[in-house]
């Protein structure tokens, strides 16, 4: 192995840190999957595991700081005239450590120490509004809050006690003419189209003056939870989310000429904004709204990759919602940051 790479790996991850990471994974698995004490949630486990790449980010920041104090930038010029070698090795080292950390996250499950929780469906409240058209047709407007997986469906409770339409003639349909026939005493199940899932909003309408009453408080969105074999895929998504962040950290440090710890904090802020699920709400006006709008603008400037970090109890809402173009854009951003990091810069004076 390249001595530079070997040195970087040893410096970032000495045995004390290796033990800490192993203990952290064991604790996370115990808190999540233990038969009597655990939360029995794959999302919670993924949330605990996602802390480790962040720790790694700050750890690399502190190593970069230490190296700067030891005069590494000056030595790098002597070692390699193009200035590519050190940042490339740091990036490869970061990728190796990130991959190893996430592989370690699979160990408690793969080893059979803990069983995976049974996959069930997540049920989420839905915001509903009603409007009436000129012909008396009522429109049901659903706001799902954000992009949801394509496998999601709406479950609607319809009150037939004042219905003027017979069950044979009753229809609930969308503007694109997809329709479902409601049956008295059964939930109306509406499978979302790709566009509805992406936008997170949809409109349904029953027959004109049908007398069907939608029970607003009982509308739910059902999302099938990823099954046990989804763990490697979800961890790979975390890998894709965090990898460009390490390149951004190196770019901040080398191009921005700022301390490694400050670079790590700035990268952490970018990651927090990138992981923010945007909900279509009216932000209003005022200084707070202006700040929120600024954050939304930064978020919109980044590729939509919040689905890559599908963690927490509501992880099924985010899992598998990231478009491939978004992933490509995010990786390209990382590539650009790496290119910036490898550009020859004269060392700092003093």
């Amino acid at each position: 192995m390249n001595p530079l790479l070997k040195g970087f790996l040893r410096e970032v991850m000495p045995w004390t840190w290796q033990v800490f990471f192993a203990l952290a994974v064991c604790t996370a698995a115990s808190l999540s999957f233990d038969a009597s004490l655990g939360a029995h949630s794959l999302g919670t486990y993924l949330a605990y595991i996602s802390i480790l790449p962040m720790v790694l980010l700050f750890r690399i920041g502190s190593v970069l700081d230490r190296r700067a104090q030891q005069g590494w930038p000056h030595q790098e010029i002597l070692r390699n005239a193009n200035g590519h070698k050190a940042p490339l090795n740091e990036m490869i080292g970061s990728a190796i450590l990130l991959g190893a950390t996430l592989l370690l996250g699979m160990a408690p499950i793969v080893s059979g120490l803990y069983p995976m929780p049974n996959p069930s469906s997540g049920l989420y409240p839905v915001h509903v509004q009603f409007t009436t058209q000129d012909d008396g047709t009522e429109l049901w407007l659903f706001d799902l809050g954000s992009t949801v997986p394509k496998t999601a469906r709406l479950l609607l409770t319809v009150d037939w006690s004042e219905a003027t339409v017979s069950p044979e003639n009753a229809v609930v349909q969308s503007p694109d003419e997809r329709q479902v026939r409601p049956i008295p005493g059964e939930l109306v199940q509406w499978d979302l189209s790709e566009a509805e899932a992406r936008v997170g909003k949809l409109v349904l309408q029953p027959n004109a003056q049908s007398g069907l009453i939608l029970r607003k408080q009982l509308c739910r969105l059902e999302i099938p939870r990823p099954e046990a074999d989804a763990l490697p895929r979800l961890l790979l998504h975390q890998f894709l989310f965090f990898l460009p962040l390490f390149a951004i950290l190196l770019a901040w440090f080398r191009c921005g000429r700022i301390r490694g710890s400050l670079s790590a904090m700035a990268t952490f802020t970018i990651a927090s904004i990138a992981a923010l699920p945007l909900s279509p709400v009216d932000l209003g006006s005022g200084p707070v709204a202006a700040l929120a709008k600024m954050l939304v603008l930064v978020k919109l400037a980044l590729p939509p990759v919040e689905g890559l970090l599908a963690t927490g109890h509501r992880f099924d809402r985010l899992a598998d919602t990231t478009p491939e173009l978004g992933i490509m854009g995010w990786l390209m951003l990382g590539g650009l940051a790496l290119w910036l990091a490898t550009r020859r810069r004269p060392p700092r004076k003093g």
């Binding site: 919670t44 901040w252 929120a292 930064v298």
Partner: peptide
């Protein structure tokens, strides 16, 4: 730029607009 971004993130987190990375782990715990 880094400090500005950091302050923006901190303000967003205190207002509840941005959830810091790791907040879901804390919620899980």
């Amino acid at each position: 730029l880094a400090i500005g971004l950091l302050l923006l993130g901190l303000a967003g987190a205190s207002l509840g607009t941005v959830q810091p990375l790791g907040a879901r782990s804390w919620q899980g715990f």
